[in-house]
């Protein structure tokens, strides 16, 4: 028992259909996420990533309605038996569109919004706001309007707004899809820090394979609402048929390896990191040199 890790999220044979929809958006998903784990959810558009993210804090089905089967348990609470507001203290959510989730006129108010709703004392709220802004590296900007921030900063602010309620789980729904590479790195570095320093469980839906192989412990692959696989990134990206079926992009170095393989230039390994590719290419070139 002692060797077993604690599951903070357990999705149990869960199917969900949006109101007025004719087909299920999620189909018999079963997935367990351990405390402190960094889980990536990948899949093409319409695969069910956003839907799955929204089941984790109860937005689905509590706010969206619709029909469901099975259950989602977060920190011991069955999501459809509680309220979104209650779950908000366990699961912080960051949405894809930075504009729609920021609705106050000051950064400080944006971060304080959650704790204010929980009716916390003002000194405690101030303390949490200060901490959350410090974590996302926006300290000193309290009085500025969110509209004055860059895309990456806005997403970091959205993370701070979720963090202020000190959730155990942070769910990020394609948080970098509208960001440039710099903004993407800013956000992912903050997320990684949260996981390392605070042992926070991270669930991130994304299309960006390069970044995800660096950070994720496991990757869940969705296609048409079904969970096709859930495993270590290396094992996932080694399954070429799976990746092609789910319409996911390989990391660029893996794509290069596949191209080389088509040209009969076998690397002897399937790299997913740039460093691995460098090493493999070095070996290939050295080997090639010897042959000649």
């Amino acid at each position: 028992m002692s060797g077993k890790k604690e599951h903070i999220i357990s999705v149990e044979d869960y199917s969900y259909r949006y109101p007025a929809a004719k087909v299920n958006a999620l189909k018999e998903i079963s997935l367990q996420i351990e405390k402190g784990e960094f889980m990536a959810i990948m899949g093409s558009n319409g695969a069910g990533k956003t839907t799955l993210c929204q089941t984790l804090n109860g937005i689905i089905p509590l706010s969206q309605g619709g029909r469901w089967k099975g259950q989602v348990v977060v920190a011991g609470q069955v999501t459809h038996e509680t309220t979104v507001a209650h779950l908000a203290q366990e699961v912080g959510v960051v949405l894809q569109d930075p504009e729609s989730q920021l609705f106050t006129t000051k950064i400080m108010h944006e971060v304080a919004f959650g704790p204010e709703n929980l009716n916390w004392e003002v000194p405690l709220i101030k303390e949490r706001v200060e901490w959350a802004l410090d974590v996302v590296r926006l300290k000193g900007m309290e009085e500025r309007p969110p509209s004055a921030l860059s895309g990456g900063q806005k997403q970091r602010l959205a993370i701070a707004a979720a963090l202020a309620m000190q959730p155990n789980v942070l769910v990020l729904d394609e948080p970098t899809s509208q960001l440039d590479p710099m903004g993407t790195m800013e956000v992912l570095e903050v997320v990684q820090e949260l996981r390392e320093k605070y042992n926070m469980t991270i669930v991130i839906a994304t299309h960006k394979s390069e970044e995800i192989v660096k950070f994720a412990d496991r990757v869940a692959v969705l296609d048409d609402g079904k969970l096709l696989a859930c495993d270590h990134p290396r094992k996932i990206f080694n399954q070429i048929d799976l990746i092609k079926k789910a319409w996911i992009r390989f990391p660029q170095v893996s794509e290069l390896a596949l191209e080389l393989a088509e040209m009969d230039l076998e690397l002897g390994t399937f790299p997913i990191f740039l460093e691995e590719m460098e090493e493999a290419l070095k070996n290939l070139l050295q080997g090639g040199g010897k042959d000649e």
């Binding site: 979104v84 908000a88 959510v93 989730q101 108010h109 919004f113 204010e116 709703n117 009716n119 003002v122």
Partner: peptide, 25 residues
């Protein structure tokens, strides 16, 4: 669509969780 997203964002930050709320300012 934007209003709905805003609603999701507000719900996700415990809007309506308590009968009363505090204000930082």
């Amino acid at each position: 669509r934007r209003a709905q997203l805003m609603g999701v964002a507000m719900d996700s930050r415990a809007f309506g969780a308590q009968q009363y709320r505090t204000y930082i300012e």
